[in-house]
Nucleic acid binder design. Sequence first.
DNA 1: CCTGGTTTGTTTATGCCGTAAGGTGCTCGC
DNA 2: GCGAGCACCTTACGGCATAAACAAACCAGG
Lengths: 260, 260
Amino acid sequence: MAVYAGQGDARRSMRLLWRAPGGAAGPGLSVDVIVDAAVEVADRDGMAALSMRAVGERLGRSAMALYTYVPSKAELVDLMYDRVLGELPSEYPVDDGWRVALRAWAVDAREFFLTHPWVLQVSQARPVLGPNEFAMLEVLLRILRPTGLGSSVLRGVVGAVVQFVRGAAGVIAEARRAARETGMTDEEWWFSRSEVFEEVAPDFAERFPLSAELGEEEPPPVEGDESVPYLERDAVLNFVTGLEVLLDGVEAAVARAGGG
Amino acid sequence: MAVYAGQGDARRSMRLLWRAPGGAAGPGLSVDVIVDAAVEVADRDGMAALSMRAVGERLGRSAMALYTYVPSKAELVDLMYDRVLGELPSEYPVDDGWRVALRAWAVDAREFFLTHPWVLQVSQARPVLGPNEFAMLEVLLRILRPTGLGSSVLRGVVGAVVQFVRGAAGVIAEARRAARETGMTDEEWWFSRSEVFEEVAPDFAERFPLSAELGEEEPPPVEGDESVPYLERDAVLNFVTGLEVLLDGVEAAVARAGGG
DNA sequence: CCTGGTTTGTTTATGCCGTAAGGTGCTCGC
DNA sequence: GCGAGCACCTTACGGCATAAACAAACCAGG
């Protein structure tokens, strides 16, 4: 289940997120050191393995030692989230037009989510958060500024793009996770699934003719990287085509608004 | 964090999902009764409160009693997920064109996610699952069939639409959750947040000028329902405009493919 | 230098969680 | 009438977040 922001002291949360004075880095621990360690744990072993004990252990301390610096696990997750968001690139040239820049951003963001897949498990859709979330928004808005879109449409576009990338990255992350955790290759896993599937739903093609048809053809290899496994290839393809559809939609909105 | 599918016996999971013979409903419990109870718990108290003990209690049984019918909590969540997906409408008239139908679907799906917000916390992007997930896909494909789009683009479109609705619903769910858990109204909560915000990030407008500008204006009331609170109104508006952008994108793809 | 309060960490304890293990009694086929 | 198997129970284990109480290290003012 998603991890929610601490309901506790909103002021303290905010001060931590925005690094207001008070979090001095003494000889011992510090918020930053703890957040770093937590991110390492989550990157390596996944969100499920992220426990206060695990983070403490990685720092040679007890779990309780962390509570001097961080009010709760939920707040720690918030800090981790905002922390890694800072890794997103912040500059995209708009010389080639917003479409090129936005596409580049989407690709980078997808890559980011795959580097830190646990981010996808942090409660989606949290409104006000830390500085790096705003930095991300600001980057998107800079890219989209040349479109001249009004703020209402702009908000819709930003939301759609972010959610799309998040979702698409989720599919890929899931494919990777399945491959890793079962120790099978993509193809093996998929094949073993299909076997059970036919046994349990022999009338599949009749019940869901369109779905069956859609699932038939094999996706072509990813251009430039033939090593991408089956399921992931599929997901990447969906990402690419879905993104173009989305960009077309933005373009239509821009055309309607008379910008360019 | 998201709940993952059981890694255990794939055959057993599938048989349960597709209700293969064997799950007779005797005088005592049954898979269906358990799944119902679990959905009720999750609907009322949220995913975090969903424990085997809680479900057992609601049925007047112990937690362990459930394990006769359901191999693990992860499988139970899978069953819950597929169960509620069955609540989605299955028929959309295409007489007025695919755009109208797709928009109606998106609205219904958003409503669905808000009725069962915990669904948003079930591991997104799990590939093969139960019958109702395919039913949902089938509905979307039926709606989109008149476009004549090829299967590659079709997959991208379906993914983009589903992810968009999911994400947009997540924002609204989050707004509602914040309001409920803090006991404040939307406006109060937002106002109290802003106060801390200005204190902690006084240079916000300089650091993030475009974001600041975007956040300035107040959203107009939702047409036909003036009671929708502030934050949610914002989210609904973003949903509506984002959806149109997305639909424009699909339309562009259709036009390019020469269909209609 | 001593002394007392604050800071930083510990250990311990409480009450959750999922679920393995090992009952107990009931029902049914023989 | 008896053994098997089923449905459900209690108990137990290891893990979790975190409250509470305590210890040691630092730093202030005398």
